[in-house]
Every structure is written in structure tokens, then in C-alpha cells.
């Protein structure tokens, strides 16, 4: 390979021109409370798994809304579903159900 002195990397932009992924839309339909999140970070602050890993539910939810499905799915796997986040969430988001759906979402519509 010829070295041109630089490498071309993929754009870091989140493409907001794309429509929301149908799988995500379906997920939001099945757990509408996900739309309530204001990303206050409380869920991440109390997170049991977050003590050991970078588990941050509000970020998963942002990923979902920005269409970053694969990142979201991968990050959701650390969750223990303990429900502490849900107890303290000021907006009453059903986080456990949300993460459960996130962990099994696929590119094909099947949530």
C-alpha cells in the first residue's frame, strides 16, 4: 500500500438525515416510556453494572434515538436488569424493559 501520509477515516458524524431506524421505531412503540428520558444521568449514577463497566442507560437511549443500533445493542449486554435505575428515574421510564428490548434488537425488524 502506498503511504500518502494520511489515512481516510469514516466520518464521525451522526447522520440525522436518515430516518429513525424502523427497528428503533418498533422498540419505541413497544416501550413508549423510552421517549420520556431527559438524559439526567441518574440511571447511570446508580447503575449496579455501571460500577464495573461503562453501562449508561441514558446513553443507550440516546444511541437508539440517533440510530446507532449496533453500539447500543453491544452496550446493553452488561445490564443486570436489577431495576435500581428504574426506581430512581424521575421520569418513570421502564428502563428494564427498554434494555431487554435493546439487547435483542436486530437490524431486521424483529425486536
Amino acid at each position: 500500500m502506498i503511504n500518502f501520509g494520511y489515512t481516510a477515516s469514516e466520518s464521525r458524524h451522526i447522520d440525522m438525515d436518515e430516518r429513525l431506524h424502523p427497528a428503533i421505531e418498533k422498540m419505541l412503540h413497544r416501550e413508549p416510556s423510552l421517549k420520556e428520558c431527559i438524559a439526567c444521568g441518574r440511571c447511570a449514577a446508580v447503575c449496579t453494572a455501571g460500577y464495573f463497566t461503562g453501562m449508561q442507560f441514558y446513553r443507550l437511549n440516546l444511541m437508539a434515538h440517533r440510530g446507532l443500533i449496533n453500539e447500543m445493542k453491544q452496550a446493553a449486554r452488561a445490564c443486570m436488569l436489577c431495576g435500581k435505575c428504574q426506581m430512581t428515574c424521575p421520569k418513570g421510564v421502564n428502563i428494564r424493559h427498554g434494555v431487554l428490548l435493546m439487547s435483542q434488537i436486530t437490524d431486521v425488524l424483529d425486536v
Binding site: C40, C43, A45, Y51, Y58
Partner: peptide, 8 residues
């Protein structure tokens, strides 16, 4: 959680 830093 420092949500802007994304870190606890």
C-alpha cells in the same frame, strides 16, 4: 453521573 463527560 457526569453526563457531559459520560463518566461517573
Amino acid at each position: 453521573e457526569d453526563t457531559l463527560m459520560g463518566r461517573p
